[in-house]
Design a protein around this nucleic acid. Structure first.
Lengths: 301, 301
DNA sequence: CGGCACTGTACGGGGTTTGTATAGAGTTTG
DNA sequence: CAAACTCTATACAAACCCCGTACAGTGCCG
């Protein structure tokens, strides 16, 4: 974390744990894709560096986008070889710059920053930048370092930008996902991220936005017959307030609860699925599922 | 900004899911229509590129309009083979080329064309190219010669590009203009053009974007105290819905209504100014006015 | 009505990719 | 020195993918 390039070196076991890839697999990737070039100890042990970690992470990011291992590795290598004069200023700096821009109502600047954030692909931008920025903005707001207007301004712009990124996500012929926030809920960003991640995998998104009455969601559901319906709420009450309707919805459509307001137990009680974590990871899991399970009853807990 | 050569490559399964066409069918289209030319992995697996995706989407767009597969494929191939290298010089040709690029979902090509359009200055590019292109796109859309998806695709790209052009328009010492679209309004291009024209004449721009709640505009207005506030809406109701607040805003700041949704009578009723025409001309007129009229009451009809 | 072209899909035999397992031998470390 | 770690090389199996051919449904035409 401190500015200097610490000469960290990890042996394979620790490195494997660090990046979440099995040791065998690390060796295979090194051999097959030439992805890693760890130094060696005098006795021949691999010593991985931060650069290796970056390559692994990059490869993983590409794989979550649905690119096969070999191609993902090639991309990761190309990236790390390419001259990168504008090192995507570590996320923290971007977030700070964003806050400054928000304080002076400088939408153009914010858009530029978002450009930088998304330069490496929208999903990565969201994960590394947008989500952290939102957290930070929320914190500053709580601490009174930023006004409601500024907070709205920034999140509104981010939302608009994400929606721009989402241009045409309703087009095409991929499987269809219906996204909505139940009525009362006003936050859309989690929902949009979910949608972006799915769209990146070729899904078609029907986006109803936040604060949508359940019956309207049901309506849309029956008329569009999507592969899946995603309800995202940051507070449980927006879901529990409509428990009966949601359960009913779940009986007709494959339905998923997401967002901080959702819990596995609640989902189970309502007989619907639950996506608890990071929207990006959840979307990937969903995209990888065997598609169209004709009986929409699985309460995958 | 867009020199990325790190091209994604998808294997057939992912690609099929992405474009919503079965794998068998993809192979058939490749064989029968010569639509796709995927690279091959060393072992012979197909590796599809973005260009392939564009061709598929273009073909699908044609098919949804009722054209048979073979013809649709031929059209898609023709579009993708169309004059790629020569970035045309005459405005009319540029517009045509843009439409072609939009039809084949070719973002890179559109960016290239915009490059050419803006080579002689942003405002000229806007007047001679972007505005005519938007008009033409609208016409083709009405005539059913272009799909909604293609239209959105193009206008989002143009918007993003214009905003990039607008980088730094908030800096300097000129008079400050605050630009915003009232909530509900989602179109930004007119607003941005207005801002670009003002910026060209030395104005500083604070850009809040479209779909901004009025109270937030007021907020920003009091904190930035601009020379003028410009509200742009394509439909009258976005203005009339907030008549009272706008009138109130007009009492504090020199306020201008613009866009097709604004009318002289409406402006007069709200006690604010009105800019009826082409954004570029209006911006010029505004810039030429004797600045800071200390009594913000002129309802220039 | 019988061809006929067009299209999307099915099948089966045979390669590829990729994560993981195993075995035997060497290295680090307390 | 022994326990814990690693190394290389080889081997697998599951999931993927390739190709050629065949087939059924549809719409068109003589």
């Amino acid at each position: 974390m401190n500015g200097r390039e610490e000469e960290d070196r990890w042996r394979i076991k620790e490195f494997a744990a660090r990046v979440g890839v099995q040791e065998v697999t690390l060796r295979a990737w090194e051999r097959r894709y030439n992805l890693l070039q760890p130094e060696r100890s005098s006795g021949g042990f691999r010593l991985y560096s931060r650069a290796d970690e970056r390559r692994i992470r990059s490869m993983q990011a590409h794989m979550t986008r649905g690119i096969a291992a070999a191609q993902a590795a090639a991309l990761a290598v190309a990236e790390s070889t390419a001259d990168r004069p504008p090192p995507p200023a570590r996320p923290g700096e971007l977030v700070d710059a964003l806050i400054v821009a928000a304080k002076s109502f400088d939408a153009t600047r914010i858009d530029l920053l978002l450009d930088a954030a998304f330069a490496r692909g929208s999903v990565n931008g969201v994960r590394e930048f947008v989500l952290p920025a939102l957290v930070e903005i929320g914190l500053q707001w709580e601490r009174g370092q930023i006004t409601v207007g500024q907070e709205h301004f920034a999140s509104h712009l981010i939302e608009r930008r994400l929606l721009t990124l989402a241009a045409g996500w309703g087009e095409g012929n991929g499987p269809l996902a219906l996204l909505a926030g139940p009525s009362g809920e006003r936050h859309t960003l989690g929902l949009i991220c979910f949608g972006l991640a799915l769209a990146e995998r070729g899904w078609r998104i029907a986006y109803l936005g936040a604060d949508t009455p359940i019956d309207q969601i049901v309506d849309a559901g029956t008329s569009l017959s999507p592969e899946v319906v995603v309800l995202c709420a940051l507070q449980a009450r927006y879901l529990t307030d409509h428990a009966a309707e949601i359960a009913e919805l779940g009986r007709r459509q494959h339905t998923i609860l997401a967002g901080a307001g959702a819990t596995a137990t609640l989902a189970q009680k309502l007989g619907v699925a639950y996506a608890g974590g990071d929207p990006l990871a959840e979307a990937r899991a969903l995209a990888e599922r065997p598609s169209s399970p004709s009986s929409p009853s699985a309460t995958t807990a």
